[in-house]
């Protein structure tokens, strides 16, 4: 492997910051051999996570890192904010398909586009979402 772990942090405050997070994520991921449709999925997931930061916390950051594990390569997206936090993470990860109240977008939507997904949050503690997509999976 010629490239060691590369990490870029992008502060998120405005629409323009979302654009830059998507652009950086797409560029990093394209170097790992993702297909065009996978690149769209990664950009879409970054949009959903960054949009949540803007909507619910006002500001935060998106950290993009290349990951290597057991010979495979992937991109790790971490969206962090110090906003009000999520009182019930489990409920926030539910789509509401059963209640018909949502469309499968947002956090659960982003989870489905990525291979690994984790949310750590508590009221007053801010929110950290980590999501990884592996190339060739």
């Amino acid at each position: 492997m010629s490239m060691l772990t590369d990490a870029i942090a992008i502060p998120i405050r405005t629409e323009a910051d979302i654009v830059s997070a998507r652009q950086t994520g797409r560029r990093m991921a394209s170097e790992l051999g993702f297909t065009p449709s996978e690149l769209t999925m990664i950009a879409t997931a970054i949009s959903e996570l960054a949009r949540n930061v803007v909507t619910y916390a006002g500001s935060g950051e998106v950290l993009l890192e290349l990951r290597q594990d057991a010979g495979r390569r992937g991109i790790l997206v971490t969206a962090r904010d110090e906003g009000p936090g999520i009182p019930d993470v489990e409920a926030a990860m539910q789509d509401g398909f059963s209640t018909g109240s949502s469309l499968g977008l947002g956090l659960p939507g982003a989870r489905r586009l990525m291979d690994e997904f984790d949310v750590v949050s508590a009221p007053g503690q801010g929110t950290t979402v980590t999501a990884t997509k592996w190339a060739g999976e």
Partner: peptide, 18 residues
């Protein structure tokens, strides 16, 4: 078009999963 369809991909995966 590909980007415009991204959200639909998310929703479709949701339907499949549910």
């Amino acid at each position: 078009l590909q980007e415009m369809l991204g959200p639909f991909e998310m929703a479709l995966r949701g339907y499949r999963e549910s």
